[in-house]
């Protein structure tokens, strides 16, 4: 089933009288349970595209359908609802609330979804356990390593059981070994039936995905199945033990 359909999307930033096209003309389909890597040089428009797919931003021109519903014209509140229920976002800089512990960070989307405290805690705890942080529930972000912080962020993205997981350079602030562990986690998440889109500019990260989209100057340069996909699931399990 088609989750994301975008047609002739453009994004323009106006700085004074100058117009900067972050995205020139992008069309794209993403199906359920796909595993996509978006690659491209710095400034090519990857984050802009991700933010749009994640309903954080709206296109200047073009059409965006999420699960068959047109979101390009939605109000702020409707977009907030979609972000909350359908989208799990993972950022390069983790973006956790520094004053809250892991449990509360993961619980947060469920507060906005209107779940009761008991159910929230239960689900947040499970999500943290699933990313291997069952013993770090009451640690605050500054008491965790970078890899652990990103795991908390991933747990927060998973906890609402969203239709799609978006990750913008999730390994960008991590060393390569920790980066591999995080990618192993995404592999696992994908193998459980989730749809995953990862932005990266490192080839070895992109190799995990089934499909690689390359962007340059706000245009799609290539969109192809990844022939040489590696599935390090078994090793990663071994590594983390």
């Amino acid at each position: 089933m088609n989750i994301i359909t975008i047609e002739n999307i453009k994004k323009v930033y106006k700085i004074g009288t100058q117009e900067i096209f972050a995205l020139r003309d992008v069309s794209l389909n993403i199906d359920e349970n796909e595993y996509v890597a978006i690659m491209g040089p710095s400034g090519s428009g990857k984050s802009t595209l991700m933010n749009m797919l994640g309903c954080l931003d709206t296109p200047s021109y073009g059409r965006y359908e999420f699960k068959g519903v047109n979101v390009s014209k939605m109000t702020d509140n409707e977009l907030a609802r979609i972000r909350n229920k359908e989208i799990g976002f993972v950022f390069q800089t983790f973006n956790l609330l520094s004053r809250s512990d892991s449990l509360h960070n993961v619980e947060l989307p469920l507060i906005y979804a209107g779940l009761s405290s008991g159910e929230r805690k239960e689900r947040a705890r499970k999500a943290l356990e699933s990313v291997g942080l069952g013993d770090r529930i009451h640690h605050k972000p500054n008491e965790l390593s970078g890899g652990q912080r990103q795991r908390v962020a991933i747990a927060r993205a998973l906890v609402t059981k969203p239709a799609i997981i978006l990750a913008d350079e999730p390994t960008g602030n991590l060393d390569s070994k920790t980066g591999e562990e995080i990618m192993a986690l995404f592999n696992e998440i994908h193998s459980q039936g989730n749809t995953v889109i990862v932005v990266t500019h490192e080839e070895y990260i992109a190799k995990h995905a089934k499909r690689v989209i390359r962007i340059k100057d706000g245009l799609i340069e290539s969109d192809a199945i990844n022939e040489e996909r590696i599935i390090p699931l078994a090793e990663s399990k071994l590594n983390s033990i």
């Binding site: 954080l56 509140n77 972000r83 973006n95 947060l108 989307p109």
Partner: peptide, 16 residues
């Protein structure tokens, strides 16, 4: 500001 951004990204509405 950053915190507000985070909250909005995970589904906080304006009125929240």
């Amino acid at each position: 500001t950053k915190e507000i951004g985070i909250r909005k990204a995970i589904g906080a509405k304006r009125r929240t």
